[in-house]
Design a protein around this nucleic acid. Structure first.
Length: 794
RNA sequence: GCCCGAGUGGCGGAACUGGUAUACGCGCACGACUUAAAAUCGUGUCUCGCAAGGGAUGUGGGUUCGAUUCCCACCUCGGGCACCA
């Protein structure tokens, strides 16, 4: 008798599957395709964390099931390897980023392979590979050619510690998302991507896809669509003020107007005001405020532009004009009408400066807008995407600055613009990329006129490479195109994209934006990249706190795989709680899934033993004959019929639960089945047990493959067909129902499925316990819920 | 402040569309096997009560024959957004 040796078994099948290319996605196969995708990891130096296997195993279960259902499955993996941690490590150690990346991806590869995830490794990609980022640069140039990538001098969020410009999305509470340093403002020439041009479609097309509501709402929230009116107010200085409001219906209640301190026309109002010195001092003070100060201190401040009056177009009343920093210049028109009666911000401001409040009737917003000559407009909170970083470890922006020709795109044949090797990766204090110091690389010829020119030294943000990687998987080695249109047509869109909640606003929005842009260029076949998106919660350390190096509570999956095996780890991570919620790691509980696997192993051993016994007693050597003999013999046993029924119910439950990602309840139902098989003295046929192995195989692929082949199968369990339940077997002929009196359970009864309601009711009324409870009382009503319960109301 | 999500044994959690709350797993206790231990198997494990029976799904109310599930108010925790007019 062999013991369950997870180390031997897991290694053996991982090698075997790889050798036989079981998980290879076949281009243009006649089978229906299924593209399942997980967010590709950032290969950090710390290696895999127990949080990684959860999404991978979840999608692996779906992918393995799809293969067994007859789909040609694309389930790829790659590395999102540009980024700050690697660069910072390079600065510290002086090692080349690409060397660090190689080491980290090798480690990640070893770790992921030890988990038995059915990735198609032949399609592995890496965003830092010049053959990959050539196409990231190429797509950037398409944006540039369409005028959607542009350079502008703008105030950017500057992290003084990381020495890097941040996108708005990377600033959290006025601090750098990565290091927590308060963000400063700096004026800098920046590359921008015009995502706002796609705002409306990014919002509207969410209707086309199957994303969870919480994902859709956070995207919608971020895009921030709102409909309102633009209305012009005349002033006494012959210069109108255009405001944006969603509450034109309150126009009669306006008591003053407010301009943002950095309003485009602020200068004209300033010079004509009677308190110019006071106003310019206020504006200067506000400009120096950091984002953090703005966010932390929400007490409103402002100053009146004395001598300037605006006219309310609705009633001709004269109202004052203020400058206040509670109004944002970048949203709407940078000016608002204040209605303290209906807006808490205006109310707070009014109270602070003791301004009047007037009470006026509301009117129809659309009618009043038309009446005063305004127009209905749609505005978005979404702002254009700051696309430059002053860093080394990113894709160089493929632009050459020529004195004569201006900004010239690098011709396609000269792509990729490769990162040069440098001595120091340290960013400079003046806000320039370290690339700017490499004059040999910077100084070049203009591709247009051949004259002296300089390369753009900014690099792209981390989000660039991950905005289109799912397309490259369709054709990862293509040298002439980012992917062959035929292959894109076959594989895309992604059928099911699974990832973390932390990426549902930024990454998901950015990649949808790139995809839509490529769709407009007719380079991809669908308007949306991902048909279905799901998200999981994170794994927390013991005690419900975040796992971190500083707390010393990080669990390394290598240790778990070594001690308990990959199958146990997989089942544990799927069993730990609802997949979409966060879960608390508890090493003590891992033993449960391990025991379950050992139990399945024991069942396999017992059946194998019986098979051999039968074989030696029998003159037949054909296994199938032996199985049939077993069935004939066992058919007489009551347990045998019971287990067969339970098996089919379990097949149904597991099949459904995988689709809804209720992996924990799927495992629970398989545990129940295994418990019952053992309790009922293994009264299950080998062919039925094999069905059980099949539905368990996506969860625990190694041990099930081993038992499967020990029981005489020659082909991989991965190549078998997903079992279907027999509808006849999931119906019970006898059902236990509850008997309630006034809603309280008093007894149980066994009924047969074909009994009529009348029969059941009269049986219930004859029941001893029931008689005891209803004696001397009047039966008012009897409620029967089919195959559930009878409730007697007295 | 606003918008989501959640609150069930010692712990992780289950419960279909309003229909037997606490499945499954961990832990714990006892028993079997063993020279012994581990492993495994069996039994028990919400709570009060000797029992009959009563009480429990964050709190208080409501609808209903019947509520973890629906409605109202409140409390707590987690996540997102945060001066967007």
């Amino acid at each position: 008798m062999k013991n369950y040796d997870h180390k031997k078994i897991e290694k053996k099948w991982q090698i075997e599957w790889e050798k036989k290319k079981i998980f290879k996605a076949i281009d243009g196969s006649k089978k229906p395709k299924f593209y399942s995708l997980i967010e590709f990891p950032y290969p950090s130096g710390e290696g895999l964390h127990v949080g990684h296997p959860r999404p991978y195993t979840g999608m692996d279960i779906v992918s393995r099931k799809r293969r067994m259902e007859g789909y040609n499955v694309l389930f790829p993996i790659g590395w999102d390897a540009f980024g700050l941690p690697t660069e910072n490590y390079a600065i510290k150690t002086g090692k080349q980023p690409k060397v660090i990346v190689k080491k980290n991806t090798d480690n990640f590869t070893r770790q992921i392979k030890s988990l038995g995830i059915s990735f198609d490794w032949s399609r592995e990609i890496n965003t830092t590979d010049p053959n990959y980022y050539k196409w990231t640069q190429w797509i950037f140039l398409q944006f540039f050619k369409k005028g959607l990538a542009y350079k502008t001098k703008s105030e950017i969020n500057w992290c003084p510690k990381d020495k890097i410009g941040l996108a708005n999305e990377e600033v959290v509470d006025g601090k750098c998302e990565r290091c927590g340093t308060p963000v400063e403002k700096r004026e800098k020439e920046q590359w921008m991507l015009a995502i706002t041009k796609y705002a409306d479609r990014l919002d509207k097309d969410l209707d086309l896809v199957d994303f969870p509501e919480r994902v859709k709402s956070s995207q919608r929230n971020w895009i921030g669509k709102s409909e309102g009116s633009e209305i012009e107010f005349k002033t006494n200085i012959n210069r109108n003020i255009k405001i944006f409001t969603t509450r034109a219906d309150t126009l009669f209640g306006v008591t003053y107007l407010v301009l943002a301190p950095d309003h485009t026309n602020i200068g004209e109002f300033l010079v004509q005001s009677k308190n110019m010195a006071e106003v310019s001092e206020y504006i200067r003070k506000v400009k120096n405020k950091s984002d953090l100060e703005r966010v932390e201190n929400k007490v409103k401040s402002g100053v009146e532009l004395k001598g300037i009056k605006a006219i309310n177009p609705a009633n001709g009343e004269e109202i004052p004009v203020w400058v206040a920093d509670y109004v944002l210049s970048h949203y709407g028109t940078g000016a608002v009408m204040a209605v303290p009666q209906h807006d808490i911000r205006d109310k707070e401001f009014t109270e602070k400066y003791e301004l009047p409040i007037i009470d006026r009737p509301l009117v129809n917003a659309k009618e009043i807008t038309e009446f005063v000559g305004g127009k209905m407009v749609t505005k978005f909170k979404l702002r254009d995407w700051v696309f430059s970083r002053q860093r080394y470890w990113g894709e160089p922006i493929p632009i050459v600055n020529c004195e004569k020709c201006g900004m010239v795109p690098v011709p396609e044949k000269s792509l990729p613009v490769k990162l040069p090797e440098v001595k120091s990766y340290k960013p400079t204090d003046n806000g320039e990329s370290p690339l700017a110091l490499i004059s040999k690389w910077v100084n070049t010829k203009c591709p247009k006129c051949g004259g002296k020119a300089k390369r753009e030294t900014d690099t792209m943000p981390n989000w660039a490479g991950s905005s289109w990687y799912y397309l490259r998987y369709a054709d990862p080695k293509n040298k002439n195109k980012f992917a062959d249109p035929k292959k894109l047509k076959y594989w895309t869109p992604v059928d099911w994209y699974h990832g973390g909640m932390e990426h549902v606003t930024l990454h998901l929005l950015y990649s949808r934006f790139w995809h839509k842009f490529l769709y407009d260029l007719k380079l991809v076949p669908t308007a949306e990249p991902y048909m279905k998106r799901t998200a999981h919660g994170i794994i927390l350390g013991e005690g419900g706190v975040k796992m971190s190096k500083s707390l010393g509570n990080v669990v390394n999956p290598d240790d778990i795989v070594r001690t308990y095996g990959a199958d146990t780890l997989r089942i544990y991570e799927m069993f730990i709680g609802p997949f979409q919620d966060s879960a608390v790691w508890n090493t003590e509980s891992i033993i449960g899934p391990r025991r379950f696997i050992e139990k399945v192993w024991r069942i396999g051993e017992n059946l194998e033993k019986n098979q051999k016994k039968a074989l030696s007693c029998s003159s037949h050597s054909n296994l199938n004959v032996v199985n049939e003999t077993n069935i004939a013999y066992r058919a007489e046993s009551v347990s045998f019929g019971f287990l067969k029924k339970l098996l089919h119910k379990t097949i149904k439950k597991v099949s459904e639960d995988i689709e809804s990602m209720n992996f924990n309840t799927a495992i629970s139902s398989m545990m129940i089945l295994a418990n019952e098989i053992e309790k009922n003295d293994f009264q299950i046929s080998i062919s039925d047990f094999k069905l059980f192995l099949q539905i368990l195989s996506p969860f625990a692929p190694h041990v099930t493959e081993e038992i499967w082949q020990n029981l005489g199968e020659k082909k991989s369990i991965n190549l078998s067909t997903w079992p279907e339940f027999d509808p006849k077997l999931i119906i019970d002929s006898e059902i236990k129902i509850a008997v309630q009196i006034n809603g309280k359970v008093r007894a149980e009864m066994i009924i047969s499925a074909d009994q009529t309601e009348e029969e059941i009711k009269s049986n219930v009324l004859a029941n001893d316990i029931v008689l005891k409870f209803i004696s001397g009382k009047e039966v008012k009503k009897i409620i029967y819920v089919k195959h559930r319960l009878v409730n007697i109301v007295v």
